[in-house]
């Protein structure tokens, strides 16, 4: 699946640079994500993985380079940017469910306000999505009443409710208790199998092996190496990746 066929990639980053003050967090990053492709980004903390994820829907601006989504350069601001974001789902490390709204309202807010879908229709679809992630019975509750794993599954349903062309996952399981990681990964694996285009920043190597079409290894703001999981995990080409993998896999 690394081969994107004849069609243009859905996302293309070219020569992207980003600084946080004196810190150069993205250094001349080039990356494409094909339609239906699942790209997993791994690497040491502070290497720019989350920033890479966040520049794709412009939650972070970039200093130089270009990012195109679906053939168009990312709009700078305003309604055009909002429209782009509605086509790119995002799942955060800290869930970020709207605390003052019920679970169902979290899922229907985007469709009703952005897409102007009638409420009843949005609620019907919202319940289907909650069913799919296994939270339908909690629809009337507020986020604080749910476990972390449940909240993150709702966050995925909220992203899906917009029928996005792609979903970005920014360390979706890093804030979860260990026993809740699997339920979230299961939902994500299901999405990958259904052909959703995904860019996933994670430390879950099992998920990377199982669900990724391509693994991107990032360190110090640069993409050091990329390849299919089987290749990358068994025969990493770079010293840096070998070092990283030996630290996390050897025990």
């Amino acid at each position: 699946m690394t081969d994107t066929g004849g069609s243009a990639p859905l996302v293309r980053l070219e020569g992207v640079n980003k600084h946080f003050g004196p810190l150069h967090v993205l250094k001349d990053v080039d990356l494409s994500v094909g339609r239906g492709e699942v790209v997993v980004v791994i690497g040491p903390s502070g290497g720019g993985k989350s920033t890479l994820c966040r520049v794709v829907n412009r939650l972070e601006t970039i200093d130089s380079g270009t990012i195109t989504f679906d053939g168009r350069e990312l709009p700078a601001e305003g309604r055009a940017l909002a429209r782009l974001r509605s086509e790119v789902g995002m799942v955060f490390q800290s869930f970020n469910l709207f605390s003052h709204k019920t679970i169902l309202e979290n899922v229907t807010l985007g469709p009703t306000r952005v897409r102007k879908v009638p409420r009843q229709q949005a609620e019907r679809r919202g319940m289907e999505l909650l069913e799919r992630v296994g939270i339908a019975s909690q629809a009337g509750k507020h986020p604080a009443q749910l476990s972390g794993g449940q909240q993150q599954r709702v966050a995925i349903a909220r992203a899906l409710a917009m029928d996005p062309k792609m979903i970005l996952f920014d360390e979706p399981t890093s804030a979860l208790d260990p026993e809740m990681v699997q339920e979230v990964l299961d939902v994500m694996t299901g999405l990958a199998r259904d052909g959703m285009t995904m860019m996933v920043v994670t430390h879950e190597m099992g998920f990377a092996r199982r669900a990724a079409d391509r693994v991107v290894f990032m360190a110090d703001g640069q993409i050091v190496e990329e390849g299919v999981p089987a290749e990358f995990f068994t025969r990493p080409a770079s010293e840096r990746a070998r070092d990283f993998l030996s630290k996390i896999l050897s025990h």
């Binding site: 305003g78 909002a82 800290s94 970020n96 966050a155």
Partner: peptide, 20 residues
């Protein structure tokens, strides 16, 4: 993160402010 989540589902700035 509340505002970021609101923006990432496509709400405009006024909507983010008013609804979230």
């Amino acid at each position: 993160g509340q505002a970021e989540a609101a923006r990432s589902i496509g709400l405009t700035f006024p909507q983010t402010l008013r609804l979230v």
